[in-house]
């Protein structure tokens, strides 16, 4: 264990408040291909942080390292005051972290309600026999999980489809169910991998509203990968820009918009952006 990182990593933006998420000198490569190279940044509690960059820049790899699906070659991840060389995915939910996936990752055979209630699996204490027999404790915790799931369905306007198998819903709605499943445990940190990919403009606007509401009403810190620069600029407090696995910029939307390095690597010529926000 390196002695250098014995104290929680503190975000420069947040003053003395420990960050909700910090990564420190993360590097990851697959064979000879570098996915992440020496990436460090911190996300303050209650922040909406976007991660943008061209395809293959390492955005999804970053999220997979933070959720423990990939083990980094070097570097550490700080989550809620704990530091990890490799994040234990099995304990992710208990650490107050949840995530969505780039491609839909719903349990297609379960109803919408059961999908969302499954987001509380890590809180269930009753053993399988207690559940089968229907002991009061098992019944109570199940009713509680369902009630919380119902609240989330109402929050995201999904109550109309609560009993439908998740696999039968239209794409945009499935994305919203995934958000509900990620939010139902009231995570401190929510990681969203392209939550609006393939959505119509209206759906994007709705989902942006829901994401902002999750932060404002539930106090969730949000890290999201998104390609739609217009949406990102309007939604995020800060933006991190990746290119070829390196962090090339990290700042407020205004700073990013005018950063010559970012314009060069990703955004294109500046006046394009000003002409039409939603590229």
């Amino acid at each position: 264990m390196p002695a250098v990182l014995s104290e929680p990593f503190v975000s420069p933006a947040a003053g003395s408040v420990p960050s909700a998420l910090a990564v420190e000198a993360l590097s990851l490569s697959f064979g000879g291909v570098t996915a992440l190279s020496d990436i460090s940044f911190a996300v303050a509690p209650g922040e909406i942080r976007a991660v943008i960059g061209p395809n293959g820049a390492g955005k999804s790899s970053l999220l997979n390292v933070v959720s423990g699906l990939y083990r980094p070659d070097r570097g550490r991840v700080w989550l809620g005051g704990h530091s990890f060389a490799a994040v234990p995915t099995d304990r992710l939910a208990k650490l107050g972290v949840s995530r969505s996936f780039q491609n839909l990752a719903l349990f297609k055979g379960l109803s919408v309600l059961d999908n969302v209630a499954a987001g509380l699996s890590h809180r269930l204490r009753a053993g399988v026999l207690a559940q089968v027999i229907g002991l009061p404790a098992a019944r109570r915790e199940r009713a509680e999980a369902q009630a919380k799931a119902e609240e989330l369905l109402a929050f995201l306007h999904l109550d109309g489809v609560r009993d439908r198998p998740a696999g039968t819903l239209p794409y945009g709605m499935q994305k919203r169910v995934e958000l509900a499943r990620a939010l139902v445990a009231r995570p401190r940190l929510l990681l969203l991998d392209e939550p609006m990919a393939g959505m119509t403009l209206t759906e994007k606007r709705d989902l942006s509203g829901h994401i902002r509401a999750a932060r404002d009403d539930l106090g969730t810190t949000i890290v999201l990968i998104e390609h739609d620069v217009g949406v990102v600029m309007g939604l995020s407090d800060r933006i991190a820009v990746l290119d070829y696995g390196r962090l090339i910029a990290d700042g407020t939307p205004d700073q990013i918009r005018n950063d010559p390095v970012v314009i060069d690597a990703y955004l294109g010529v500046a006046h394009d952006l000003e002409a039409g926000e939603g590229i």
Binding site: L69, T89, A93, S98, A105, L106, S121
Partner: peptide
């Protein structure tokens, strides 16, 4: 239906 997602949600 989705082993990775199942693992992530605990």
């Amino acid at each position: 239906d989705h082993e990775t997602a199942a693992r992530v949600i605990g």
